[in-house]
Simulated assay, not measured.
Amino acid sequence: MQKQELVYQETKFTLDTYFLDPIADYETQIERPLVIICPGGAFKFQSDREAQPIALKFNAEGMHAVVLHYQLIDGQHSVYPLALQELATTLNWLKTQQAKHINLKKVILIGFSAGSHVVADFNSIMLDPEQREKIYPAELEVEPAANILGYPVIDMTLGWPREEEWAMKISPDLYYWQAQEHLTKNGKPTFIWQTVTDATVPVMNAIIYAQKMDMLGIPYEMHLFGSGSHGLSLATYVTQNPGQEDNLNIYDAEWWKLCVNWLKLQEVLPKF
């Protein structure tokens, strides 16, 4: 893993990059898909459980991976619109990294919990030129091919955050609160998973985004598991916080296989 510092206007932010090395045996190098990971953490921090372990899983499937340390709540900035501008800057930066053999037509965004809100808002706002130009006047040179949302925050009026004061710190502009409200037919195919027993982010968040995608005719796949807590990450021992039994769920861990199958369906990964 290597750190990469980028700048949007005068704001610096960091990427953790997990680029696969070229295989010396190959006469022609493969241009590999890439995933940009937005971990959760309630916009207070970014969970390591949803960063490196996820990046390495994608590496094992033959994909490059980048963890985006997007804007959090601090004393100077709210999350939005800066997090969206940072994600757009990251996508455009990929175009300068072609020595890494990236397939720019197969860039995927994945978010967990609060990080899913960043991805969903990007899919809704930043892929619609009329909405995007209001906050990011530069051209978006690389567009994601698809999205993955894990136990997502979609609408900040649907139970998370519980305090309106915290939502106002995330964004004093209510425009950014409800990702589904700004989704257009420009949105990309999306894989969504969550548990119906999630006590932190109500499952209606996932449902309402899938419903809007369905209305617009945007391809999606959604899996709602019958049990499980919030913040599962891989739901295996790999991402278990020691002693936290609710981090483990053999049934919910199937989301990873389902997600890989979906990426094959989207022709991001080869079928064989």
Score class of each variant (00 low, 15 high):
T89W: 02
I37N: 06
E50T: 00
T90V: 02
Q29I: 07
E254V: 09
A65Q: 07
G231P: 09
E27Y: 12
I154F: 06
D214Q: 11
M63S: 13
Q266T: 08
S171Q: 10
L68H: 13
F112D: 02
W177N: 05
E5W: 11
L149C: 11
S78A: 13
E165L: 02
Q266D: 11
A138M: 09
M1I: 08
F43R: 01
E181M: 14
F225Q: 07
Y70Q: 05
F58T: 01
G62T: 06
L68R: 13
L216M: 04
L258T: 14
L20T: 05
P39V: 04
N247H: 15
I108A: 08
Q194W: 04
K95Y: 01
E245H: 12
Q85H: 05
P53I: 04
E254H: 14
R162G: 14
R162D: 10
Y209I: 01
A51H: 00
L127Y: 05
Q211Y: 07
L216E: 07
Q180M: 02
I108Y: 06
A65L: 04
Q4D: 06
A120T: 00
L6N: 07
L232D: 07
V35H: 09
K185H: 14
I148H: 14
Q98M: 06
P39N: 08
H64Q: 10
I125M: 04
G243C: 06
T157W: 10
K134R: 13
N205A: 11
D121S: 03
L68V: 05
I108N: 00
E130W: 03
Q71M: 14
M156T: 11
V203N: 08
P144T: 02
A145Y: 01
K95H: 05
V35P: 05
A65I: 07
Q29H: 15
Q180N: 08
Q194L: 09
S113G: 08
A120M: 03
A60D: 15
T96V: 05
A167T: 08
F43A: 03
I30C: 10
A88S: 12
I208D: 12
E130P: 00
K212N: 00
F191R: 02
L140C: 03
G111N: 05
I148Q: 12
I54G: 06
Q2C: 00
F43N: 07
P129V: 04
F122S: 07
V67H: 11
P137C: 13
G115M: 04
A167W: 02
E181T: 15
P172C: 00
E133D: 08
K100N: 09
G226N: 10
Q211W: 04
Q240N: 12
R162L: 13
K106D: 13
E141H: 02
I250G: 11
H101L: 08
